[in-house]
């Protein structure tokens, strides 16, 4: 008897994407550039986060025609974003056969109280987090992969490092607690007890832990990998740069050999065009910060 879409199948796909770069793309041509550069997956979008930020308005699930064109063009897994809490968008994305759904704060939330119950879906979900408790709440709802939120479309790595350090420090803290302290800790941080216990005992997250939100250079990718990310999502960082092809190759290079500064230096040196323009996130109003979306 074959059993489809088991938890192992869902988490397993995330594990297959380790050590890789997942690139945001808005059309088939970009998807091909990403695949040719060695991306492990592409995120199909209508607008990259930097444009969403600049243009404003409501950001929704991408046009299905775009997603399907991308699915027809590349052989690597294709991800797509649904709005937080918009389970009908997620149902549609599953129906057309995307390989991973990102319930993403980059889009305008559809529900300001509840996230999608991700367990009943066959397709795996990835969700953003700013700290360990938020990660465990999403895993509790059925997310099979976690990524830092960072600050999407900012070209600024500061929030991604903050979120990754929060997650890693949170794990270390749990691992140092006695079993009789875990229930109160679960209550205090607002995370499911069973998952708190699992993390305390294993010393790691039960699903892959990736990074997103502000990676713009090869060194940014190497930084996040050294801080504990198992792969990186690059949103606006590639196709908002001057030479997307060279940048994509360089970020893949730096992610593969992240622990070897000589290799990361080679990756940086190959770049002639400028990185995407960045934003000092301290100048952003709270309402302009995407990372505050999600609960």
């Amino acid at each position: 008897m074959a059993e489809t879409s088991t938890w192992r199948n869902k988490v397993g796909l995330g594990e297959m994407l380790r050590g890789g770069v997942i690139m945001d793309v808005t059309n088939a041509e970009q998807a091909k550039i990403a695949e040719d550069a060695g991306a492990v997956s592409v995120m199909a979008l209508e607008r990259v986060p930097a444009d969403i930020r600049a243009e404003g308005g409501v950001a929704r699930m991408a046009d299905l025609t775009i997603i399907e064109e991308i699915m027809d063009t590349v052989t690597i897994p294709v991800m797509a974003k649904a709005r937080i809490g918009h389970f009908a968008e997620a149902q549609v994305l599953q129906a057309i056969g995307v390989d991973f759904i990102d319930e993403s704060e980059v889009l305008t939330p559809a529900d300001e109280q509840f996230h999608i119950d991700k367990h009943p879906f066959d397709v795996p979900f990835v969700c953003g987090c700013t700290n360990l408790a938020e990660a465990l709440r999403r895993i509790g709802e059925g997310a099979a992969m976690i990524r830092t939120k960072g600050e999407a479309g900012s070209g600024n790595i500061v929030e991604a490092t903050r979120h990754m350090r929060n997650v890693m420090t949170g794990i270390k803290r749990l691992a140092g607690l006695r079993d009789d302290e875990l229930m109160t800790e679960a209550k205090n941080i607002g995370a499911p007890y069973e998952l708190v216990k699992e993390v305390a005992h294993s010393g790691g997250l039960p699903v892959p832990n990736f990074s997103a939100g502000g990676i713009a250079t090869p060194a940014d990718a190497a930084l996040m990998m050294q801080l504990g990310a198992e792969s990186v999502f690059v949103g606006s960082g590639i196709f908002k740069a001057e030479d997307p092809q060279a940048r994509a190759l360089a970020i893949v290079h730096a992610t593969t050999y992240y622990e070897d500064p000589v290799e990361v230096a080679k990756a940086c040196r190959g770049l002639e065009g400028a990185a995407m323009p960045g934003i000092d996130v301290r100048t952003l109003e709270d309402s302009e910060r995407l990372a505050t979306r999600g609960w």
Binding site: T4, T6, R8, N9, D99
Partner: peptide
């Protein structure tokens, strides 16, 4: 043959 059993939603386990 790559992806011979379908896309991710068709992934499965079996004895």
């Amino acid at each position: 043959k790559r992806n011979a059993f379908g896309r991710q939603v068709d992934s499965f386990e079996t004895d």
